[in-house]
Amino acid sequence: MTEPHPLLKVKDVTKSYFEDGKEFKILDLIRFELAEQDFVCVVGPSGSGKSTLLRILVGLEKPTSGEVLFEGQPIRADNPQVAMVFQSFALFPWLTVTQNVELGLEAQNVPLPARQARARKFIDAVGLTGFENAFPRELSGGMKQRVGIARALAIEPLLLCMDEPFSSLDPLTAQNLRDEILQLWSDPQLPPKAVLMVTHSIEEAVYLADRVIVLSSRPGRMVAELVIDLPRPRNRKEPEFYGWVDEIYSLIV
C-alpha cells in the first residue's frame, strides 16, 4: 500500500556545537540513502565527525538541521530495527556474555525461553559458544567485540551500525574479525539487511564495503560516494584493490 521507502534516508544533515556563542560546524549537509543489501562504509580522517554522524543516524543525537528517516519515519534511539556496535565494545562489565547479548531482548520484554534461545543462536554464530557464562573481563579484545556483534544481531535488526568496530583491536585480530563479519554478512539467514560502518581506515573500507562515502576533515562534508565493484573475497594485494585505496586517499588529502 505504502510506496517503498529506502531503509535509511539521510536528508541534508548538519550538526554544529555552540560554545560561547560561537558556532563550530562538525557536519555539513550530509545526504545519502541506504537500501537493503547495502554494505556502506563512511571514511574520513579523525575528527571529521564520523562518530557524531553515526550517533545522529541512530537517533542518539539530534541534527542541528536536516532529518533522518528510517523506513520513512523519523529515527528514534530505541528503534529495535537498528542496532549499534561500538569501538570501545560498550559491554556491561557486570553482566555475563549471555546477559549482555540478551540486553536488547530484555528491553523488548521477549519471554525468557525465547530470549535464551535467541542469545544462544547468535553467541554460536559469532563463535562464542563455550564462553556463555564468562564476564567481559575474562575475554580477549576480539571476543569482546564478538559479544558486541552478537548483542547487536540478537535483536534481529534491519540495519546494523558500527563505529570503528575494529579500531581497538590489534591488526591480526581485526583482520580475522573482518573476515568473520563478511562470513556472517554473506549468510542470508542472518540479520541484518544492511550495514553502515564508520572507519578511518581506507583499506578497511575498500575491503568490506559495496559503497564508500568519503568525508572531508572538519567540517565533515561528503567528498565522494564510490561504488566498490571488486569481486569477493577481496585480496588486499591486488592492484585493483590498491587503485581504489589510492583514489580515496587522493580525495581526502
Partner: peptide, 11 residues
Amino acid sequence: SVGQILGLVEA
C-alpha cells in the same frame, strides 16, 4: 588469542 592466530594464518 584465537583471533590473533587465525589472523596471522590469514596474513
